[in-house]
Structure formats: C-alpha cells, structure tokens
Write a protein that binds this DNA or RNA. Structure first.
Length: 301
DNA sequence: ACTTTGACCTGTGCGC
DNA sequence: TGCGCACAGGTCAAAG
C-alpha cells in the first residue's frame, strides 16, 4: 500500500481522526517492528494530545502537544484501522484472537499482526497492523527532528520544491539506471516501485537508461528529464486524487492494491497490451536491483 | 564515492 | 492436498 500517495491518504485520515484528541491508552504487542520500539514510547504517547499529522517522504509525523513527535512508517504492509466509538463494541464482539499484549495488559483487539493499539479520549481506537513488520515506530522531540537519522538524508518532496534543475544536479555523474535512481530517497522522496514504473512509461523513457544520460553537458536537464519530473508529479497527484475519493472509508479498506490499480498503465501488466495511444507494444517485466520493473519496450526509449 | 546485493519478515499464488 | 519456490508497495548495512 504505501508509496507517497497512499501515505498521504493515510495522513489525511489520521489527521481527521486524531487531531485535537488525547491518547489515553497505548498497547504494544511486541518489542518492535523493523527496529525495537524506543524505551518510554508508551509513556511519551500516553496522555498527549495530537496537534497535527504531517508527512515527510513516506514517513508519518504525528505532533503531540508535549513537544514530542511520533514517527510512523508503514513499511511494505503496514496499515491503520480506525474504529469509531460506536464501532468499538462490534469489534470487541468479533475479535476472537489473543487479547493479551506483550506486557500483559488486557486489550480488546489483537489479530496476529496487530502490533500497536491506541485509544483516544473520545472513545475511538486505532490499530496498527503490519504482517511483514518492515514498518517503523519512533518518538523524538520536535526540536530534534532535523537531526533524525531516518529523515536527514531525504531528498526533495516531489510535490513541493522539486524541479528539473534539482533533478539534473542530483543525476549528474550517476551511472545507475534511471528506474533505480527514482527509488533512491536522496534523489526524490515518495516514489516507489509502482509510480517509478508508471512515471517512466508516461514519459516514454526506458527504465534502463543511465541516469546521467538525462543531463546535458552544461548541467541542464534534458527534455526527457523535464518530462520525467513533470510526469512523476502528475502521476502522484492523480493517485492522491483517487485515494482521496475513498478517504471516507479508507480505514476499512484492507490496504492492498485496490483502487489505483485501475489506473496502472504498466505496473503488474506483464504480457498485456501497451495502453498508450497508437502504441501496439506489449508490456514486459524485467528485474532491476532485485525488483520488478514493467515497461513497454516499444514506446519507452 | 558510487553501485549492487542481501537481509529483514510473513503471506499468497503458482506449478508440480 | 501438499510442498517448494518466486514474489510482494521499503529501506539499510555490507560488500563489491
């Protein structure tokens, strides 16, 4: 589920549900996710009121009135289920799995992969579920955000300051294929495997093109790079727009592919016809950096 | 300094 | 039906 558009969709949902509400209880059902939970995380969250929910790259940053920030990354399979106060009894009735957390507290939820549970002053509950546990949860003081190891090396936000000139500067001297570069958080943030493939297809650029071939001798971006930067922005915006339309019930959505899948032009369409106007090519799958890349060899050069 | 590979996890879907 | 394997939206440390 989680590339920039999906994380942004989740951010909107959490913002609506959480801002202005106090966290009354936190239950952790294991020692950590990808990394151990920081010591005292529960103590920092409990009793604090959420003041805002931000996003940086694919990280969710939940600001608390205590001056602390709760960081949440969804990894590959993380998701939040939001349960409104009136739904809580129903969930309590249907959940039959273990109800005891790692630390022995009794909780009402607890599917095998429900690792964190948050209860709020208004009676709502949020459950973080993550089968693969590649997600991250952390807490730090807002003042220390600029020196957070997880955040400090991140490149530009694609929908904010990012320009073709910036992309050209970062692409200079890079010999790795452009698809790999798009996935590099230092080049631009938020683009994952799906949208990298989609943006390259929209731009008519082969994923295997060496990155530095998109920069002119004088350091300016080529026309192709200008187009790529524009198409990354476009595809992300289009996906956010669609995610937004399902926002009302996003908490109930099971988080896997789903809605934007209808809009994929190449991703996961191996052997299918290229959908670009006038192109009769066939979508191929190749492997780059151990990840699948989908492309139309006919219209991507 | 750059680039590639393997590791972290569990679940699912496929071929045999 | 069962088993083994390939693969899945991300990131980082280690090796090349």
């Amino acid at each position: 589920m989680p590339e920039l558009p999906e994380v942004e969709t989740v951010r909107c949902g959490l913002e609506q549900a959480w801002v202005g509400h106090r966290i009354t209880e936190v239950y952790l059902r294991r020692e950590g996710l990808r990394f151990p939970f920081p010591s005292g995380m529960t103590a920092h969250l409990k009793g604090a009121t959420v003041t805002s929910v931000r996003r940086r790259a694919k990280y969710l940053l939940i600001d608390l009135d205590s001056g602390m920030v709760f960081l949440s990354h969804l990894g590959m399979s993380g998701r939040y289920t939001l349960i409104t106060p009136d739904e809580v009894p129903k969930y309590l009735a249907t959940e039959v799995s273990s109800n005891v957390s790692t630390f022995g507290e009794l909780t009402g939820f607890g599917g095998r992969h429900d690792h964190m549970e948050f209860r709020f002053g208004n009676g709502s509950v949020a459950v973080y579920t993550d089968p693969r546990r590649f997600g991250i949860a952390d807490v730090f003081p807002r003042a220390e955000e600029p020196i957070q190891t997880l955040l400090e090396h991140l490149g530009p936000e694609p929908l904010e300051q990012w320009t073709a000139l910036d992309a050209a500067n970062r692409a200079k001297g890079k010999r790795s294929p452009i698809k790999t570069t798009l996935l590099d958080q230092r080049f631009v943030v938020g683009v994952g495997n799906i949208y990298a493939c989609e943006a390259l297809h929209r731009s008519g650029i082969s994923p295997t093109r060496p990155t530095n071939k998109l920069v002119r001798k004088d350091g300016k971006p080529t026309k192709a790079l200008v187009e790529l930067v524009a198409q990354v922005k476009e595809v992300l915006k289009a996906a956010i727009a669609v995610g937004g339309s399902t926002l009302n019930d996003f908490a109930a959505v099971d988080g896997t592919l789903g809605y934007f899948g209808h809009h994929f032009q190449v991703y996961d369409r191996e052997d299918g016809p290229c959908l670009k106007e006038g192109c009769n090519g066939t979508i191929e799958r190749i492997v780059q950096s151990n990840r699948s890349t989908f492309l139309c060899p006919r219209c991507q050069k």
